[in-house]
Structure formats: structure tokens, C-alpha cells
Design a protein around this nucleic acid. Structure first.
Lengths: 216, 216
DNA sequence: ACATAAGGTGAGAGATGCTCACTTTATAAA
DNA sequence: TTTATAAAGTGAGCATCTCTCACCTTATGT
């Protein structure tokens, strides 16, 4: 990818302005934003985010390139926006699943259920393969994913801390964060294999976390 | 990155010819290949593989761009070559560490030692951050990493199968593969955090695998 | 009606991977 | 030594992609 050109007056520092130039005051403007994201999502699912061309996004959305850049400051911002949207949806499910967990067995089962759910989601929506891959060269996307993992790990850590009061908190937190990040890696591995092997891997991950939740 | 242009006569199919055009028959030719890799390694360590410019590699190696492309068919091939070299070195250490493992405790300790070793390596040589990230958009690099993981998992699986004869083999294999892939993910996470938190994460991973190796 | 702001446009600048027609250097046979 | 052949090297320039900017069009409020 050709290096993004910085605006003339700007220094080299990343200003990270995810905000669109457009104020989205008018109705059509908001509809277009959603249309752009939908189109981008399709293209990423089909080709991967690297092969997604801004010109094609614009064309398929029926707008000019110039207009596209009014909604998103650069290409990576689109990927980030999709990631944020996906994360927001996920976090709702996660919070719901972990909400009324009483004991260790309940936590283990809730977590196993979440893993199942995610696996199904990964298999169904290939966009995720790109968004979730945590692999992008974009540091801001990495930061976003880490932040998201931390948020989820905090939920998990709070529960684990109650169940294992004797274990030092920093150990709990590290474990919770690790479990979360490894979950994404496990999903990525699973979907890159054929179905039966992928299923085995998911089962293995569920066993692995079951142990870890019991003895962090 | 601008899409690689396919040679005129070629169809869209990836021919995956990693072989250089140069036959490397002459002495200097082999030296140059190593020089190119060394320079590329430095640049990747400093900037990341995405920001590594072929023109800069050529310049720093003191050769022309055309010449560079005689040694490596495209940019990704350089990254792949570095990955292969790194993997080859790693595998030797791994095989050595797992070679004379007698019982479960021995395996657990050997594995923990390997994790330590890798963590140190990751901290010391940032090239790995890019090579190992498993995140590249390049499908061939992914395939390479998976193949490598499978090779290591096979070593681990053989030992685990002896220690746990009652557990079905496909379950052992899935677990071994998972443990390996998650190790890379754990390393990546650890080095992206500050040192003390990274250390905690590595400890957490060691505990996690200790359980899993005992009960796959 | 008019003014102002919001929204839209597309040619083209900038950047970068990669090619190709051609030159230079090494190796070996005559 | 001369000559032939293969190996290695060169760099201007093409193709392609992201992103900008000067200008145009449409909506909203008074």
C-alpha cells in the first residue's frame, strides 16, 4: 500500500482523527455512510481488506472518490469503523452471557457457550477474518483490538477474582486478558482449517480454558 | 501496496515460484542474496514489512532495483525467505528441547523453558514481530506458518500421545496444534504490552499450557 | 428570493511495486 | 588470446493505488 500522504501542514505524528469531515447533518448523508460500510464489508469479505480498492468502494456505493473521502479520512478508517461496529455488537453478547454467573461451573459453561457462538459467527461472516485478525499493520487497529480485549477481560477478571480470592489480582488480570486474546487466535486457526479439524481445535480450546478458569 | 502485476502471459493463478531468477552460480551472487536479506531484516525490524520499500532495500544493499528482483520475485518473497530462515533456526531448538523428554513433568518443564526462550527472542529481535505475526495478508506466508506449526505440533503430539494413551489421537493433535499457535499469539500479546504486564502474560501462558499438557 | 452551509465531483499528484530492453562481467571453449 | 555463452546488473518508466484540491450542486433557514 502506498504510504498515506500526510496533509501538508501536518507533522509526521498520527493525529488519529477518525471523525469524518462530513457533519452527517442531513439524512442522506447518514444513509450513505452506512452504504459505504456495507459495500466495504462485502468487498473485504470477498477479497480481504488489502485488496479492497477505495475506487471500487466508491463506485459500488454510487458516489465519487472525493465524496468517499468526506466520510472516511482514509482507507484504514473504514476498516476501523467496521471493527468498532463488530466489537460493539460482540461486547453486548459477552456482557449478557457473563452477567449472571454464580459459580465456577456457571462461568465455565457460559464461556464455552460464548466460544461456540463466536465460532459460528466466524464461520458465517468472513469479514471477521480480516477485521479480527489483529494482524493488520495499522497500529491504531491493534490498539483498538487490545482496548476491546481489555474491556472483555475486565468483565471476566471481575468474576474470576470473586471465585479465586486467594490468587493475586495481577495474575487474574493477565490470565483473563490472555484467555481473551487467545480466543481470537484459536478462532482464526479453526476457520483456516477444514471443518472437522477446526471443530477439534475449538473443542481443545474449550477444554483448555475450562482448566484455566478453574486454576488461573 | 499496489497489486502485484502478473506477467503478461500468466493467468490469474498464483504460481508461487519462490525460486529466484538468478541461479546463484557465482560466489558474489550468494553473498548478495544474504546481504539483501540482512538489509531487509533491518528495515522490517525498524519499520515493519509493509513500510519496507524495495527501492530502499536495493539502495542499502548497493544494487539496482532490477537486480533485486533477480533474487526475489516480489516483495513478499523476501518476507517469506526471512520467515523460513527463522523457522528453520527455531525448529532446531524445539527439537532439541523436546528430544529427551521422559515423563509429564519433563515435558512441562521443557515447554516452559521453550516459552521463556521464545519470549527472550521476541524481546530481543523485533523482526519477529512482523514475521511471526501470522497476520500478513499474504496467504502463502500463512500457509508457511501453519506448516511450521504443524511440524512442531507433530513433535509435541508424539510425546503427548505416549503420555496419554487413553486420549484419542485427533484430540491430542488438535491440542498440540492449538498450543503451538496460541504460543505465538501469546508472545505477540506479551511484547505489545509493557514489560511487567508482558511477563505476567507469559507466566499465565505457562500455567495454562502446564494444565493442558497434563490433561489434553 | 437569497445566503449560507452541507454535500459532491473527478482530474491528477504522489508514491510504490515491478518489468523489460539493454549493458556489463564472469566462465569456458577454441 | 580471442571469442562465445551464460550469468549478473541496470534504471527509466509503466501500472496501479491512495488521497487531495479547486470547483460545482443541492439543501436549509430567513
Amino acid at each position: 500500500m502506498p504510504k498515506p500522504r500526510h496533509a501538508p501542514g501536518e507533522t509526521g505524528a498520527e493525529t488519529a482523527a477518525d471523525q469524518p469531515i462530513r457533519s452527517l447533518a442531513q439524512q442522506r448523508s447518514r444513509e450513505r455512510r452506512d452504504l459505504i460500510l456495507a459495500v466495504a464489508s462485502e468487498l473485504i469479505a470477498a477479497l480481504g481488506s488489502d485488496a479492497m480498492k477505495m475506487s471500487e468502494v466508491a463506485q459500488r456505493a454510487g458516489i465519487s472518490i472525493g465524496s468517499l473521502y468526506q466520510y472516511f479520512p482514509d482507507k484504514r478508517a473504514i476498516v476501523r469503523a467496521l471493527a468498532e461496529r463488530t466489537h460493539a455488537e460482540s461486547r453486548t453478547c459477552i456482557a449478557a452471557a457473563l452477567h449472571d454467573v454464580g459459580d465456577l461451573a456457571g462461568l465455565q459453561d457460559a464461556f464455552a457457550g460464548l466460544v461456540e457462538q463466536y465460532y459460528a459467527l466466524f464461520l458465517a461472516t468472513p469479514v471477521m477474518r480480516d477485521i479480527w485478525s489483529g494482524t493488520q499493520a495499522d497500529p491504531e487497529l491493534r490498539a483498538l483490538e487490545l482496548k476491546e480485549s481489555r474491556a472483555c477481560a475486565a468483565l471476566l477478571g471481575a468474576i474470576m477474582a470473586c471465585l479465586h480470592p486467594a490468587v493475586p489480582r495481577h495474575r487474574i488480570d493477565a490470565t483473563a486478558l490472555l484467555v481473551w486474546q487467545l480466543g481470537e487466535a484459536a478462532m482464526r486457526l479453526a476457520i483456516s482449517l477444514d471443518r472437522s479439524e477446526g471443530d477439534d481445535v475449538v473443542e481443545a480450546y474449550k477444554r483448555m480454558t475450562r482448566h484455566t478458569l478453574a486454576q488461573p
